[in-house]
């Protein structure tokens, strides 16, 4: 599969602070790539470098076959960028906002009108074309924010935390839109700190923490490689850390315990036996499904949202 993005040994420093430290990863064409990490990990910096907003100190970045350092103008016409902030003019209508962004990409006349109609349909806001942005809900603004990046039919769409603070309806709409774009062959880079969003949308991921890539590649392979087997148990009588024959690290989660184990069935059997002996009321007993949350936990020792 062709690479839409190829980043090698990327370094970016802000004075004495290193925001990106020897970062390398690649993104396959037509895939949805998840860039994961806690706040301040370096995700937005990486995205701003890819869109040419900020310069980088060293390394090489290749976007859609163009070198970022020397062919920035070519890249800008092919990339759509949706920043984390809602960057729209509140006192202008949705239509006028989209017209402004379309004109920046050199689209004019009937073609511009058609593209605006198309993207409004894509984000499900055709009926609100002439409403002022300051009358929109947070979710509607986010959708127009994305629409503005689609007008010039980009080959690569970069979305920086596009679902922050929105309602479930708008979130589902955005997810549907991203899946449709992927189907049309557009490469999507999706930055978030919501693990479940990445699991739902992305084929490939890179996990960034403190400016370094700590895991990258195919989502399922990463899950297989880094996720640990664990059992979750919840009982009011279980106030101390439980220890069983096969159990490894035990950590508190919500009102219960996550018990890492090399033998899931053996551990469940031990818990059941002990609960019956002590006449404990067990509220929940389940196998913890391998997910990115546990991968991040096992790689860094901290929760993603800490």
């Amino acid at each position: 599969m062709n690479k839409a993005i190829d980043i090698k040994n990327l370094v970016k420093r802000y004075d004495s602070k290193t925001a990106l430290d020897d970062v390398s990863f690649s993104v396959s064409s037509g895939s949805c790539f998840g860039l994961l990490g806690p706040n301040g990990a370096g995700k937005s910096t990486a995205m701003k470098i890819l869109t040419g907003i900020i310069e980088y100190d060293s390394g090489s970045v290749d976007v859609l076959g163009f070198d970022l350092k020397s062919q920035k103008d070519d890249i800008r016409t092919l990339v759509g960028y949706v920043p984390q902030e809602i960057t729209l003019y509140e006192k202008l209508s949705a239509y006028n906002n989209l017209r402004f962004f379309g004109e920046l990409y050199g689209i004019k006349g009937r073609e511009l009108k058609k593209r605006i109609d198309d993207v409004l349909e894509q984000v499900g806001l055709t009926d609100h074309a002439n409403s002022l942005i300051n009358t929109f809900s947070g979710g509607m603004k986010r959708r127009i924010n994305i629409a503005a990046a689609l007008l010039h039919k980009p080959r690569l769409l970069i979305l920086d935390e596009p679902t922050v603070g929105i309602d479930p309806q708008s979130r589902n709409h955005i997810f549907g839109m991203i899946r449709a774009l992927k189907k049309d062959g557009i490469t999507v880079i999706y930055s978030t700190h919501y693990m479940e969003e990445v699991e739902s949308l992305c084929d490939e991921i890179a996990i960034i923490d403190h400016g370094r890539v700590i895991a990258k590649g195919d989502l399922n392979k990463i899950l297989d490689k880094h996720a640990v087997n664990a059992v979750y148990v919840e009982s009011e009588q279980m106030s101390k850390i439980p220890v069983f024959e096969y159990s490894g690290k035990v950590s508190k989660k919500d009102r219960g315990w996550v018990i890492e184990t090399s033998n899931i069935l053996g551990t469940i059997q031990d818990i059941t036996k002990k609960a019956m002996e002590l006449n404990m009321a067990v509220k929940e007993l389940e196998i913890v499904r391998p997910n990115l949350e546990t991968v991040f936990l096992s790689l860094t020792g901290t929760s993603l949202r800490d």
């Binding site: 701003k48 869109t51 040419g52 907003i53 103008d73 800008r76 016409t77 990339v79 960028y81 920043p83 984390q84 902030e85 960057t87 003019y89 962004f101 920046l104 990409y105 050199g106």
Partner: peptide
């Protein structure tokens, strides 16, 4: 401050 300037920098303008 709204981030618009950053977004405009990502366009060919």
């Amino acid at each position: 401050e709204s981030g618009m300037l950053a977004r405009l920098r990502s366009t060919p303008m």
